[in-house]
Write a protein that binds this DNA or RNA. Structure first.
Lengths: 139, 139
DNA sequence: ATAACTGTTACTATAATAGTCACAGAATAA
DNA sequence: TTATTCTGTGACTATTATAGTAACAGTTAT
């Protein structure tokens, strides 16, 4: 499949909203920045909204804006909001009863991969949206 | 697309080889344990071989075995060997020159995601094949 | 020579994701 | 109250990374 880029698109959208400050923003405006269709933006926005990262208004003056300060939004929040896939997946297969490895490798792998997933998530916690925005503006 | 499971299949194969000790092992035997075709196993095996994790013999008595002790193989070695995809990918899109975010978000994101990738890889270094094998046998 | 394996290429099938379209529902403004 | 213009969402197609298979040349033991 195509790689999952929802996460990076979500960060892009949030950074754009942070930069626009108090201005109301329509999905079409964001779509222009991200270079995709408004519809796609709205679908991502819906997830961010459910996760409480943005707020939206429907109707003629429809718009969206950050629900809280950029410094209070971590990349882990975004990661969870878009429900991005785990770093690793384990293959599924029929266990061969005669083979110890075949029977127990799955559990052993899960244990190990849980650790690495935790490490990744811990790293995401360390990075705030505000930092991203600051980097964007610096350049 | 389907998720990338090459990594977990590679670990499965290596764990199986570790358990079999000095016995010569054919790709068909591994295929039975992993529950896939010998051809698929051989392709993974080829990568592991290029990375120096296993050694193989061609010809009638063809076989494969670990190139070094399981405790000297880390999951990071395996990760690199199979050339597994990065945890995150960044969306590509045409930069909108009028938009600061659109122009610089990519660099900012790359910087952030490099950090998390490093964290993930550091975590993989900590886990050896020997540990996986030990977990498999314990159960 | 023959048999039996690996290494590799070429192919098809699958499935996750991207991306688009269309429309109902909602709020504003005339 | 009607027209307008936005969001939210369901239904769809297109794309593409990956899984998985088939086939065969090359290699080695017997």
């Amino acid at each position: 499949m195509a790689n999952n880029v929802q996460f990076s698109i979500a960060v892009h959208i949030l950074a754009a909203l942070a930069c626009r400050g108090d201005q109301d923003t329509r999905s079409a405006t964001l779509a222009a920045s991200v270079n995709t269709s408004p519809s796609f933006v709205r679908r991502t926005l819906a997830k961010l909204s459910k996760a409480g990262l943005v707020e939206t208004a429907t109707g003629k003056a429809g718009a969206c804006w950050l629900a809280r300060s950029a410094k209070d939004i971590s990349l882990l929040d975004v990661y969870h909001a878009v429900d991005a896939p785990k770093a690793f997946s384990i293959h599924s297969y029929a266990e061969q009863k005669v083979c110890t490895v075949s029977c127990h490798i799955k559990t052993a792998l899960e244990k190990a991969l849980t650790k690495t997933q935790k490490a990744l998530e811990a790293s995401l916690t360390e990075i705030s949206l505000a930092q991203i925005v600051s980097d964007v503006k610096k350049k």
